[in-house]
Structures are given as C-alpha cells and as structure tokens.
Design a protein around this nucleic acid. Structure first.
Length: 563
DNA sequence: GCCGTTTTCGGCCCGACTGTTTTCAGTCG
C-alpha cells in the first residue's frame, strides 16, 4: 500500500460519485483530498493522522483508514456495484462529461464504449433530449480519436513551439506573444500547447493561421480563443491561441500559464482580500486592475515572482521560495563529453563555450572503455586525456577545468576502471549503460557497489528512462535515496530534455544531495541546463542541496576533500 | 465532504465556447 494507491482510491471515488450525479462539492472534496495528499511531502508511514491534512476531514479520513486496514473500500465497492466501469472510460472522450454519460446510461442502459459507438453510428443519440446532430458528431469523432490522444515529450513540444513561434514572428500585426500552459512551465510532457497573442486583428489572425504549413483544422474559432489542430508528420496536437488586445496581457499570460492548482490557490488568496482574479486582471471594488508584468501581478498579492516551472500543485505558494535553486545559482556543469568519446567538440571548445556561459568550473567526463559504441576511453587514453586537461586548465584563469569520467557500472556490479586509475581523476561519475533488463535486485546491486566505491562521487541519470520512449531500469527509488545518504554519493538530475532523470516526482521535497548537469555532447546542449533547473524547481529543491551551486573555491575544496 | 471564529450553516475559483436552447447546461482548461 502506497500513497499513490490512496490518491487513486480518492480520485476513483470522485469519478464514480460524479457519474452518480452526486453533489459537485462532495465530488470535488474527494478530488481536493487526493490533491492534498499528493502535495504532502511525507511518506505514508510518517503521517500520523490524515485529518491533520487540510482538505481531509473526518469522512475522508475514515475512508482512507478503512482502505489501509482492509485493503479495499466499501464506499468504492458500493459505487462500483451501481455504476458500470465502462462509464468511467466514456468520460475520457473529449466533449463527453459525467453528466452526459449519466444521462445516456439512465435513458438507454448503454455502458460500454462499443455499445456507445454503435448507438452513435446509428444516429440515435441526436434523438435524445438535450442532444443534437452536432453533439452526436463531435462525440463520435472524440470516441474515434480517443486512442490518438496523447501527450508529447518536452523535446517534441519545444520543436513544435519553435515552429509556431517562427510563424507568429512573421505576422506584423502581432504586437507580442508568449507561450503559456504546461510548455511554458517546462512540464515533462504536454497534451496541448497554448499561446497568448496580443493583437487588434483577431479576424485576420484566424484567416492567416489557416495558411500555416502545420495547420490541420479548426477546433474553435472565437475572437478571444482560437484552437487548431497542428499536424506535422506523425505529430498531431491541439494548439490554443488566446487573443488579447489591451493591458490584460500579463493577466492572461499568468492565467493560462497555470497550473490550474497554482491559480486556484491564488484565487483563494484573492477572495480572502475581497478581490477576484480572472484572465483580464484583478477586480477590486468593481474596478479592474491590470499589470505591466507577471512580477507586478504577484507583487500585488505580496507574493514573490514564481518561475513558471515552479507553478505546480499550489504548495509553492505556502512555502518560502527564496532558497529554491534558480539558473543563476549554477556555477558549473560537471557532466559533459568531448571528441575523446562521443562528443562533437574537443576539450578546448567545450571549455570556451562554458566560459561564455559564465561558468566558474567544469568537469570533462567522457565515457569509459566498456562503452565501445561511444568510443569509450581505454586506461591509456584516459591517462593521456588527464594530461591534456591539466595543460588546458593551466591556460585559463577564468575557469577551473577538472578531469573526470562517466564510468560504466558493468552488469555484475564491477566498475569499468580500477581504483588505481580512478585515483588519478578529480571526479568520478558512474552510470548504467547496459543490461537494462535485469531484476530490481541486480540493478540495485550494481548501483550499490558503485556508490560504495571511495572514488565515485555521483550517479548519472539514475533510472535510465527516456521520456515517452523508455521506462528505464528497475530502480528501487527509496533504497537509492537511502544509499545516497549512507554512502555520501550525489544523485544527478540529468537536464537533457529526453531524460530529466531523476524526475521532479522522485525528488519532490526530498532532503537529498543532487547535482544538475547537461551531459552535453554538443556545445548547444549546454543550453539544456534550464530544463534541469525546471525539474529541481518542481521538486522544490533548495540551492544548498545542489552540488554545482558551489562557488569555484568551494567546489575546489569539495574535490580536494574527497569522499 | 470540508471549512471556519463576524459564520457550526452556507459557502466552496473563474470564464470561454459550443450546441441546443429561447436563457442556459455541459464541457474544458
């Protein structure tokens, strides 16, 4: 039994209650309770009384306690008896919510997606009161597209938004625009993309967007909101454009950047002050206040500016964020590759690119000999590289260049270099690049033996996942975090947008030492640092927990002190 | 179902778009 199981239980109860047309506030009470549990940073065993959590009262506490003790919930069981499970799938269809599903079920008895599809194809839905031809058509289309609906990983979303930005830049009647929504918050995946567009020419914009190469179809065509389907190759995603013309711009941007939970929390705060927040501004005594920046908006409520990545479940508003790490705090990148292994630039080129970024130190960490596909370094080549790094380091006053490695942890847990070689290095990273299919025990054995090595300072991309493409190997996260503390080994948040590993979910609120690195194989990849920072910010990680916020002097000391 | 101290009852975040209505319900974000 985990916290996730309880969160799922509460959400399931909410869904079934909704289908039973229960009081909407009772429904949202269960949803709020689930969200409150999610926000709480404690593990299940650390929570003494569930009703101490704001949003969980006596009723929900009893439901949770019964579930933990009995392994099942009588409330959920009763609800499931009354309501076919197929109805919960129906609510996933775009355009079909709980109320319409309940209505269809009550009047026709239809309870599966197959039955619904036949009913729609036979044109019978439009004959029910409250439904029409158009609604029937939309629901059928939604049903057929249900399997198509997917979320795209952040690196795909970045590409799509750049394509759209290029198009918008060419429309001279657009005063300014910004990306909003989950893409602006640098979420791991996005289901749609939002833009805020400032212009007086909404009509013209609707005409022009239809001519874009990526335009597939209109989903909505309003003067304030126009939604289209974007299509390029196999990529198909909804893009919403919010059109504004006046001073409401930053309120609209803030509003549609979300997250929903972040905004709900803000509106609660506003309400306490007898104010009302909407996408046009803040209403105070019937007067609408607008802002010249998002910072000014937050300032109005005596709140700090929240970087978009941090605007998540709302708990960020109730904590002091002044110590949360930001991009400016990062003083160096300590995981990057050169032409010695599979990088595209040589040591000197990487050094100069990092100087340009204002870094005070870097570590060169090419692959080890086992990774032959990446031209991993033999003992001799590694020793030669160390020598070259020492020379280059002597040439540059503005930056410290350290000699490191990203060493493979082999399938049996042994390491790819002997301690005799490792002691020549300033910094050793260890990581898994092979035998991903091992059991959790085998994977943990490998990680443990690496972490216990006196030279291994950090574990790179600890789970090996690729967002939307590969699950990663079977890491016992709790055990990993515990081992990290016991062995004084640092865990990486790999900033490559295909990885983001560890993820923000894993590190959320955890008191553990981390390092954020780009794993750059190309000078352009150094730019990935912002995605890693976004991940740390979502995890509410303080700068003191992040190794590469250390100053040049502190980092030097850290190297000299050893493990 | 949860919350609170000017309230233990009466609130609970806000608005756009669509389609089916003839003033609004449902859905979505």
């Amino acid at each position: 039994m985990t916290k996730k199981d309880i969160i799922r239980l509460l959400e399931d109860i909410a869904t079934y209650l909704e289908l039973n047309l229960e009081n909407g506030f009772r429904v949202s009470a269960y949803r709020k309770a689930a969200a409150a549990l999610e926000r709480d940073q404690r593990s299940l065993s650390e929570i003494e009384s569930f009703s101490d959590i704001k949003g969980i009262g006596k009723g929900t506490r009893e439901v949770i306690e019964e579930y933990i003790e009995a392994g099942e919930s009588s409330l959920l069981n009763e609800l499931k008896e009354e309501t076919p499970v197929g109805l919960t799938y129906m609510t996933k269809i775009p355009g079909l919510g709980a109320k319409r599903v309940a209505k269809i079920y009550k009047t026709t008895g239809i309870s599966t997606l197959d039955e619904l599809e036949n009913f729609l194809r036979e044109g019978k839905l439009q004959k029910l009161p409250g439904f029409g031809k158009k609604t029937e058509e939309n629901i059928l289309n939604g049903l057929l597209e249900l399997s198509d609906v997917k979320r795209y990983p952040i690196n795909t979303v970045i590409h799509i938004s750049e394509t759209i930005e290029e198009f918008l830049n060419n429309l001279d009647y657009i005063e300014t625009f910004d990306i909003a929504g989950s893409a602006r918050r640098l979420a791991e995946t996005s289901g749609d993309i939002d833009f805020i567009v400032k212009t007086n020419e909404a009509e013209q914009f609707i005409k022009d967007i239809e001519t874009a190469s990526f335009f597939k179809s209109f989903i909505a065509k309003g003067e304030k909101k126009t939604s289209i389907m974007y299509e390029e190759g196999l990529t198909k995603i909804q893009v919403d454009f919010r059109l504004v013309s006046g001073d409401e711009y930053y309120s609209t941007l803030q509003h549609f950047t979300g997250s929903k939970e972040h905004n709900v929390r803000l509106r609660q705060i506003a309400k306490e002050r007898n104010e009302k927040i909407n996408e046009y501004g803040v209403e105070h005594d019937g007067e609408v206040i607008t802002f010249k920046s998002e910072a000014e908006f937050y300032n109005h409520f005596d709140l700090p500016f929240y970087p978009p990545a941090m605007r998540e479940n709302g708990s960020e508003i109730d904590i002091d964020i002044s110590n949360i790490v930001t991009l400016d705090d990062i003083k160096g990148d300590i995981h990057m590759h050169t032409t010695y292994s599979d990088g595209a630039y040589n040591i000197r080129e990487m050094v100069e690119a990092c100087i340009e970024r204002g870094y005070e130190y870097i570590v060169i960490t090419d692959h080890s000999k086992n990774l032959s596909v990446a031209n991993g370094l033999s003992d001799e080549r590694l020793l030669k590289q160390i020598e070259e790094i020492r020379k280059i380091n002597d040439e540059y006053n503005e930056i410290d260049v350290y000699a490191g490695t990203e060493m493979d942890i082999l399938a049996d847990g042994t390491l790819d270099y002997s301690d005799d070689i490792l002691k020549e290095l300033d910094y050793v990273i260890a990581s898994i690049h092979s035998n991903f299919n091992q059991t959790a025990e085998e994977i943990m054995h490998r990680l443990k033996s690496a972490m216990e090595n006196p030279y291994v300072r950090h574990i790179a991309h600890p789970t090996g996942r690729l967002i939307g493409r590969r699950e990663g190997y079977k890491v016992d996260i709790e055990a990993l975090l515990k081992l990290a503390k016991e062995t004084n080994t640092i865990l990486e948040v790999n900033a490559n947008p295909q990885r983001l590993d560890l993820s923000s979910d894993v590190i959320y609120g955890k008191d553990v030492m981390l390092t954020v690195n780009t794993d750059a194989h190309h000078i352009d990849h150094l730019e990935f640092m912002k995605y890693g920072i976004a991940t740390l910010q979502k995890g509410l990680i303080n700068k003191a927990q992040v190794l590469n916020t250390k100053t040049r002097k502190e980092f030097k000391q850290f190297i000299e002190d050893g493990k």
